[in-house]
């Protein structure tokens, strides 16, 4: 098997005295799509935000393509906290799509998408516009290039946010409940876009979701979180149809019974 693209080693996270992640080991292989499921408050978001460097790690290490994310090795091979420069270098492999989109309200849709390639990567503006338009086509919003985010529906906003993350060509793309803030009738269009990207293959994905059907369709693996630990981790068929851990069985039962099927 090839080297994992992401590797969590005994990762622990505290918020003050509250332990939120409890010594987690976890790997993502290149191109692999992993869904994270579990009860609210079990630590899924925090787990992903550590990888995006939006929360600071308390203990343990995370490696991205063999480089430490939060640490650097000094000349003696000892780990010390990463410099801003090192953090930025490793972070450039990771992208994230947020529950609440966070589009730049002062920029048009196309400007939203080309902003980071031009400002962060220094890509030529003409080229960035070309890439940006291609990406807009991919998410089905070519006609909205010159629109401001305030004029878009939630589903359209999220598709722009996905395009904006994708043009940076991250090796790992995190989705944190990308459809939870959407009206039910807009969920489908966003999930379809994510499925498309997933089918194109090369990007690894970390998908936090409550949409079990979606997880089953898209994910190569599902990891079940409970109380800051990954309690069970395996292919969708195992996790969904042959759960072992009592907490997972409970979760799935509760989920299936409260989740009114939309169709």
């Amino acid at each position: 098997m090839s080297e994992p693209i992401v590797k969590y080693n005994n990762v622990t996270k505290y918020f003050d005295d509250l332990m939120v992640l409890d010594g987690i080991d976890f790997e993502i292989q290149p191109g692999e799509k992993v869904a994270l499921v579990g009860p609210s408050g079990s630590g899924k978001t925090t787990f992903a935000r550590l990888l995006m460097t939006l929360e600071e790690i308390t203990d343990g290490t995370i490696e991205v393509e063999g480089d430490y994310l939060w640490h650097e090795e000094d000349s003696n091979g000892e780990l010390k906290p990463a410099s801003t420069e090192h953090l930025r270098k490793v972070r450039s492999n990771i992208g994230m799509v947020f529950q609440h989109f966070h589009l730049f309200p002062h920029m048009t849709v196309l400007e939203n998408i080309i902003e980071a390639p031009v400002t962060v990567k220094g890509i030529d503006k003409k080229e960035a516009i070309k890439d940006g338009k291609e990406m807009l086509e991919k998410v089905g919003l070519s006609d909205k290039a010159d629109t401001y985010p305030a004029q878009l529906s939630g589903g359209q906003k999220q598709r722009v946010a996905i395009a904006r993350a994708l043009v940076m060509k991250p090796k790992v793309l995190i989705f944190d409940e990308p459809t939870s803030a959407l009206d039910p009738e807009l969920v489908g269009e966003v999930l379809d876009v994510i499925k498309d990207i997933a089918n194109q293959g090369e990007t690894s994905m970390l998908l936090i979701t409550h949409e079990m059907d979606f997880a089953r369709e898209v994910a190569d693996r599902i990891a079940f979180f409970d109380a800051g630990k990954i309690v069970e981790d395996g292919p969708p068929s195992e996790i969904l149809y042959n759960p072992q851990a009592p907490r997972l069985k409970e979760f799935l039962e509760r989920f299936m019974s409260t989740q009114a099927s939309p169709e």
Partner: peptide, 8 residues
Amino acid sequence: EVATALNF
């Protein structure tokens, strides 16, 4: 947060 995520 999104600025961090896009590596600004």
